[in-house]
Deep mutational scan, measured.
Amino acid sequence: TLDDSATICRVCQKPGDLVMCNQCEFCFHLDCHLPALQDVPGEEWSCSLCHV
């Protein structure tokens, strides 16, 4: 889900339109996540760090 609060991106440390991982609660810009996300993920989304 998009989170436009004062939360910062885990990768670039900047605020903005972010998606939050449902497991670790880290936030990412779509372009900062590795691999980059093309679209906003669904409600139950886990980042690539949680899939390691």
Rank of each mutant, 00 (worst) to 15 (best):
T1I: 11
T1R: 03
L2F: 09
D3E: 14
D3Y: 07
D3R: 07
D4W: 12
D4H: 12
D4E: 10
S5T: 09
S5F: 08
S5W: 06
S5Y: 02
S5P: 09
S5L: 02
A6M: 12
T7E: 13
T7Y: 13
T7V: 12
I8K: 11
I8V: 11
I8P: 06
C9S: 01
C9M: 02
R10W: 02
R10V: 10
R10E: 04
R10L: 02
R10Q: 07
V11P: 01
C12R: 06
Q13R: 12
Q13G: 12
Q13F: 13
Q13S: 13
Q13K: 12
K14I: 00
K14L: 03
P15F: 01
P15N: 05
P15S: 12
G16K: 07
G16L: 04
D17M: 05
D17W: 03
L18F: 02
L18M: 02
V19C: 03
V19H: 14
V19G: 01
V19P: 00
V19K: 02
M20Q: 13
M20A: 06
M20E: 06
M20L: 05
C21V: 01
C21W: 00
C21H: 04
C21D: 02
C21K: 00
C21Y: 02
N22T: 09
N22E: 14
N22Q: 10
N22G: 07
Q23H: 03
Q23R: 09
Q23N: 12
Q23L: 09
Q23F: 07
C24F: 00
C24G: 03
C24K: 01
C24E: 02
C24L: 00
E25H: 02
E25K: 08
E25T: 12
E25N: 01
F26L: 06
F26M: 11
F26N: 10
F28T: 07
F28R: 07
F28A: 11
F28G: 02
H29T: 02
H29Y: 00
L30W: 07
L30H: 09
L30K: 06
D31V: 08
D31T: 06
D31E: 09
D31L: 04
D31Q: 13
D31F: 03
C32H: 03
C32T: 00
C32E: 01
C32S: 03
H33W: 04
L34W: 06
L34Y: 14
P35S: 10
P35W: 01
P35M: 07
P35R: 03
A36Y: 03
L37W: 14
L37S: 11
Q38W: 04
Q38G: 09
Q38A: 12
Q38Y: 04
D39T: 11
D39R: 08
D39S: 08
D39N: 03
V40S: 10
V40Q: 05
V40Y: 10
P41W: 07
P41S: 05
P41L: 05
P41D: 08
P41I: 06
G42H: 14
G42P: 11
G42E: 10
G42S: 07
E43L: 11
E43C: 10
E44R: 11
E44W: 03
E44L: 08
W45Q: 11
W45N: 05
W45M: 07
W45R: 10
W45D: 03
S46M: 14
C47T: 02
C47D: 04
S48M: 15
L49Y: 14
L49A: 15
L49R: 15
L49S: 15
L49C: 07
L49K: 15
C50M: 02
H51G: 06
H51E: 14
H51V: 12
